[in-house]
Simulated scan of single mutants.
Amino acid sequence: MRIAVDMDEVLADTLIKQLEWLNTECGHSLTLADVVGKDLYDFIPEKHGNQLLELLRQGAFFADLPVMKDSQEVLRRLAEDHEVFIATAAMEFPGSFGPKFRWLAQHFPFIEPSHIVFCGNKSILHADALIDDTPRNLAGFQGRGILFSSPHNVNVTGYARVSSWREVEELFRA
């Protein structure tokens, strides 16, 4: 089976780092519970405008993201039995290419560089399954879309859903 896996909010915890930025730069004391079902950008005061977007565009933000719990172990096992690709959106933030590639090489060295796809619209992917936290990426995908739970997508329905990498493992074991 060919499995495509998103990076941000699936392998890498971008949300926790964005929350740290919001709390430090905007004077908030937000927790994950505070942002469930909400858009992070709603919490950015007008005076901070596009600072977070600019930080993401520069790319360095992606260099030291925390790794999602159990993702390395489970993905390594999946890669033993399946063809695994990392498919990460990078067109919106072109400065992220290098940092994302280096992050993946550091934390997922068992994924060959030839199996890392930087893309915009994920409907072009030819895979049996796509694990992603963003519903719009699953909407045009022709294979099996699997929604990886994140606070921003708690109200989304219509997709198989996993809330952890252990659930991913169980899903592909069946």
Results as ranks from 00 to 15, higher is better:
residue 174 A to H: 09
residue 67 V to C: 11
residue 12 A to N: 01
residue 166 R to D: 03
residue 69 K to S: 15
residue 113 P to C: 05
residue 108 F to T: 00
residue 81 D to P: 03
residue 17 K to R: 06
residue 6 D to E: 09
residue 17 K to H: 08
residue 155 N to D: 15
residue 155 N to V: 02
residue 172 F to Q: 11
residue 125 L to Q: 01
residue 119 C to P: 01
residue 53 L to W: 13
residue 51 Q to C: 02
residue 109 P to H: 02
residue 63 A to H: 07
residue 9 E to W: 15
residue 167 E to R: 15
residue 108 F to L: 02
residue 80 E to G: 11
residue 127 A to I: 11
residue 85 F to P: 06
residue 58 Q to S: 01
residue 2 R to F: 11
residue 119 C to F: 04
residue 159 Y to T: 00
residue 56 L to T: 03
residue 120 G to D: 13
residue 106 Q to G: 08
residue 98 G to F: 08
residue 51 Q to D: 14
residue 109 P to W: 00
residue 102 R to T: 04
residue 76 R to F: 11
residue 5 V to S: 02
residue 174 A to P: 02
residue 10 V to C: 04
residue 14 T to Y: 03
residue 118 F to K: 12
residue 65 L to D: 08
residue 141 F to E: 13
residue 130 L to F: 05
residue 49 G to I: 03
residue 68 M to F: 15
residue 45 P to A: 06
residue 152 H to C: 00
residue 129 A to K: 02
residue 66 P to M: 11
residue 102 R to I: 04
residue 63 A to R: 02
residue 84 V to C: 02
residue 12 A to I: 05
residue 94 P to M: 08
residue 40 L to E: 04
residue 26 C to K: 05
residue 14 T to L: 07
residue 141 F to V: 10
residue 137 N to M: 14
residue 80 E to R: 11
residue 56 L to F: 01
residue 147 L to Q: 11
residue 41 Y to P: 01
residue 94 P to V: 13
residue 167 E to T: 12
residue 151 P to V: 01
residue 61 F to D: 05
residue 110 F to A: 05
residue 46 E to K: 11
residue 53 L to M: 07
residue 128 D to K: 08
residue 161 R to K: 04
residue 125 L to M: 13
residue 116 I to N: 03
residue 82 H to L: 02
residue 123 S to P: 08
residue 146 I to H: 03
residue 129 A to V: 08
residue 6 D to H: 00
residue 110 F to R: 13
residue 76 R to V: 11
residue 39 D to F: 10
residue 36 V to R: 13
residue 159 Y to W: 09
residue 149 S to I: 08
residue 135 P to D: 14
residue 147 L to G: 06
residue 2 R to D: 15
residue 8 D to L: 01
residue 63 A to S: 08
residue 102 R to N: 12
residue 141 F to Y: 12
residue 27 G to P: 12
residue 138 L to G: 14
residue 122 K to P: 13
residue 110 F to G: 05
residue 168 V to A: 01
residue 104 L to H: 09
residue 95 G to I: 00
residue 117 V to R: 13
residue 65 L to N: 10
residue 118 F to M: 06
residue 46 E to Q: 13
residue 41 Y to F: 10
residue 172 F to S: 00
residue 156 V to D: 12
residue 78 L to C: 10
residue 88 T to M: 00
residue 51 Q to N: 00
residue 136 R to S: 04
residue 131 I to M: 04
residue 147 L to R: 09
residue 100 K to E: 02
residue 102 R to H: 05
residue 164 S to D: 08
residue 77 R to M: 10
residue 76 R to E: 13
residue 139 A to K: 12
residue 129 A to D: 14
residue 44 I to R: 04
residue 130 L to Y: 03
residue 162 V to M: 04
residue 38 K to D: 15
residue 78 L to I: 02
residue 148 F to Y: 14
residue 150 S to V: 02
residue 121 N to H: 10
residue 94 P to Q: 15
residue 161 R to N: 00
residue 2 R to L: 08
residue 164 S to E: 07
residue 112 E to C: 12
residue 46 E to H: 15
residue 79 A to N: 11
residue 136 R to Q: 03
residue 18 Q to S: 12
residue 20 E to G: 00
residue 172 F to Y: 02
residue 124 I to F: 07
residue 24 T to Y: 09
residue 16 I to R: 07
residue 17 K to C: 03
residue 9 E to G: 09
residue 44 I to F: 07
residue 39 D to T: 13
residue 85 F to W: 12
residue 5 V to W: 01
residue 145 G to Y: 00
